[in-house]
Amino acid sequence: MKGLILKDLMGLKKFSKNYLIFILFYAVIGLFSNMYALFSGFIMVFAFMLPITAVSFDERSKWDSYALTMPISRKDIVLSRYLLGLIFAGAAVVICFVYTLITSGENFGTSLLLSGAFFLVGMLFFSIIFPILLKVGVEKGRLTMIIIFLLPTVIIMTLSKIGFDFSKPSEQTLMTIAWIAPFVVIAIFVASIFLSFRIYSKKEM
């Protein structure tokens, strides 16, 4: 497991350098335009995109079939990828939190809530997309990925077009959602891991 994570981290090192410039760019923009949420959102997307990029590297070099000849089980491979997602997302959450705290002038609690919300949304997308990518591969899965990313926006826009009322929910509803959301997302994340186990165990290399 450690070897697999190490391989991904080293493989992504070169690739990440280009993205670091982007991140810095967004950080500066956020700083001057007071759009700190933009930066947080961006860095979270980036954090969950990295493990997907790692999978595409693996596909290109046909690493999986090679790795499975080693003392590595199929479950190890799946788990290592989810773990990689969590490692990057964890790092992103810390960066988000510190950045929001410094630049936005919000208090500790709000900054935490904001970065936490981004983390959960990221985890949700990752949980939905990842089993699909394992099933069809990153190359073929790209379109599905874009659709899933855009789907919520499309749904909300359509609903508001046909006259659905999106008035601001009450404080209490928001608090309830804030309490329930983490558990729901964690449950979906765990379910996603088990689904990936199933998909991957049947995959022919």
Partner: peptide, 28 residues
Amino acid sequence: IGVVLDEACFHENLNHVQIAKVMKNIYK
């Protein structure tokens, strides 16, 4: 078991020093 497959290989961004580090953590 040592295996050499026809096509499958390592990440293209790695060099053999890095590969050794990875393999050290895979094979006891």
